[in-house]
């Protein structure tokens, strides 16, 4: 299945099951684009009809808002809400916890009410509904740890969907000391991704990667494009990129199912 925009669906007089909100990272970041593609493969495998906004999508405004630039946030958000409403969108899935949070928790105050899920949640539902089967066993013998993103974990209380996917892959998660509600931030949130750190002893991603490496993992899994960037950078800083992979949960599933 080729990826279609919502405009194409509309022209065909059809309606997709769900809108895939790709986000800036998923659209432009070389690493996150692979996650977008992996997720699309899963959607196709499960027979989910989906659309993207394509060039009509723009930043949700999250980094602007958390940087303090409410004006810019409102401009982005109101524009997106107009677009989403014009296509009568009801359900949205996002691979980015920051987009997810803003769409789900902040757009309603601006008049944008949508049902919003994160891709790990949607994949879990697809499995529960019998639309997707995950082949276990592929990662047997691999040491895998999972990094909770702040915006899915602490902020939105979703600790279980990602872990349940990992258990479907027959993975025994090796938890870091700080996980679930005490999971350490990767250092990217609050628009930190877009500026230099304030002076300190070390970078936050360095601290987090040191903690992850204590578990001698083969794979560090995550569910956020910014976490993935931060963790990758930290692992490169330790010159461990040859030994330790940083993967989104969807990429594990693509590999397990040979999609």
């Amino acid at each position: 299945m080729r990826i279609k925009t919502i405009a194409e669906y509309k022209n065909e007089g059809k309606e997709p099951e769900i809108l895939f909100w790709v986000g800036c990272a998923g659209s432009f970041d070389a690493r996150a684009k692979k996650v977008s593609a992996a997720f699309v493969k899963i959607l196709n495998a499960a027979g989910v009809s989906f659309a993207i906004l394509g060039n009509e999508e723009s930043c949700t405004g999250d980094p602007a808002r958390r940087a303090g630039n409410e004006f810019l946030y409102q401009m982005s958000a109101l524009q997106n809400i107009e677009t989403l409403k014009s296509y009568e969108i009801k359900k949205i899935v996002s691979t980015c916890p920051h987009c997810y949070n803003t769409l789900k928790n902040e757009y309603p105050k601006l008049g944008g009410e949508f049902e919003v899920v994160h891709h790990t949640q949607l994949i879990q539902t697809l499995i529960e509904d019998g639309r997707l089967t995950i082949e276990g066993g592929k990662f047997e013998g691999k040491r895998i740890t999972y990094h909770d993103s702040c915006y899915m974990g602490r902020v939105n209380g979703e600790y279980e969907a990602p872990r349940s996917l990992l258990s479907k892959l027959d993975v025994d998660i090796i938890e870091m000391d700080r996980h679930k509600s005490t999971g350490l931030c990767c250092g990217a949130g609050g628009a930190q991704m877009f500026k230099e750190d304030e002076p300190g002893d070390k970078r936050i991603n360095q601290d987090r990667v040191e903690e992850a490496l204590e578990q001698s993992p083969d794979i560090v899994t995550a569910n956020c494009p910014f976490c993935i960037t931060m963790l990758l950078d930290g692992i490169k800083g330790k010159e461990k990129q040859e030994e330790v992979m940083v993967l989104d949960l969807s990429e594990l599933i693509v590999e397990a199912n040979n999609l």
Binding site: R2, I3, T5, V22, S27, F28, K33, V40, G54, E57
Partner: peptide, 9 residues
């Protein structure tokens, strides 16, 4: 913005 999707397609 949709370049990744065009590439995929």
């Amino acid at each position: 913005r949709d370049q990744w999707a065009q590439d995929f397609n």
